[in-house]
């Protein structure tokens, strides 16, 4: 696998602030992988992804040291059009990213910026609308739809541009549970298709964990932990101390272990299916003992 994103000694301080938001970050992300990013607020998660899509330093004033390369090219030397064709970013607040009067215009805006022809714009528009289930909303104002629909519109805008790297910054933070499910369904489809490098910042680890190949913890402007997903959750107290909640099913299994029902060294479950399986094994072992 080739490297899609390479970050070297990245430091960043916003104008009019006293502290650095990023403090010497080093990271390599493989093409086609799915990286989940967690961490408490104000610890640099959003700054990190904005540095990947070039908003930092191109759209913000501040002190920038180190380098971020996307497919081998420094984001500082890449213009907005080229960056947008390589890195798509979905923001936490869907309303903050709307720039047009109707959903349809919203979707085609980025495609027009890429310089695509009418036929290709139509094709991509229809495809993105179908994948995100917003085909019936095209004529509406992006402000007049529900929170979940707004976020799907925002995702559709990025999908339509078909960048090889897609970043989502807390895409479900402002929507209801049903809406969250639809967003993760889209992420699952994208992962299964395997055409994109996916980076998702999310507090809702329950849903993120089954999808992520690797997890990254941001803490005080740097990477506190980066590991394959299962390994990442092996030391729950390390994460909890840094404001990250582990999946509830893992916490339950950890409790079983502490109470002596589960053998030391048993890998903690990360999703419901694994949790059910482990619980079934524990109950069977107890029944056998009885």
């Amino acid at each position: 696998m080739s490297i899609a994103i390479r970050i070297k000694d990245l430091e960043w301080k916003y104008e009019n602030t006293t502290e650095f938001a990023l403090r010497g970050v080093n990271l390599e992300i493989e093409e086609g992988s799915f990286l989940g990013i967690v961490g408490a607020n104000e610890h640099g998660k959003t700054s990190l992804v904005m540095a990947i899509n070039g908003l930092i330093p191109q759209s913000y004033n501040g002190i920038y040291r180190g380098d971020v390369q996307v497919f081998g090219k420094s984001v500082r030397e890449t213009d907005a059009v080229e960056l947008a064709s390589q890195v798509g970013l979905v923001f936490a607040d869907p309303e903050a990213q709307f720039t047009a009067m109707t959903v349809e215009e919203e979707l085609v805006f980025g495609l027009e910026n890429l310089g695509l022809g009418l036929a290709e714009i139509r094709e991509r528009l229809e495809w993105a609308a179908e994948v995100t289930m917003i085909s019936e909303l095209l004529d509406k104002s992006p402000y007049d739809v529900s929170g979940g629909q707004k976020q799907r519109v925002a995702i559709a805008c990025v999908l339509a541009m078909n960048p090889p790297i897609i970043i989502m910054d807390e895409p479900t933070s402002m929507i209801d549970p049903l809406g969250k499910g639809l967003i993760f369904d889209i992420l699952r489809k994208l992962k299964e298709a395997g055409d994109h490098t996916l980076i998702v910042i999310e507090h809702n680890v329950e849903r993120l964990v089954p999808l992520a190949d690797q997890m990254l913890l941001m803490w005080q402007g740097n990477i506190a932990k980066l590991a394959p997903t299962r390994q990442f959750f092996e030391d729950p107290s390390f994460l909890i101390e840094r404001g990250v909640l582990t999946p509830e099913v893992s916490e339950f299994a950890e409790w079983l272990r502490l109470e002596g029902y589960l053998e030391e060294g048993t890998p903690l479950p990360l999703n419901l299916e694994d949790g059910v399986e482990i619980t079934r094994q524990v109950l069977e072992a107890r029944r056998a003992r009885a």
Binding site: S59, A84, E112, N113, L114, G115, L116, C157
Partner: peptide, 24 residues
């Protein structure tokens, strides 16, 4: 930020250096 992320530039330059297709 949203405009930048969608590839909009102040000069209005579009990818490939061609003319902007006006879909609507």
């Amino acid at each position: 930020n949203a405009l930048f992320a969608r590839g909009y530039t102040l000069t209005g330059r579009v990818g490939g250096g061609g003319k902007r297709a006006d879909y609507i």
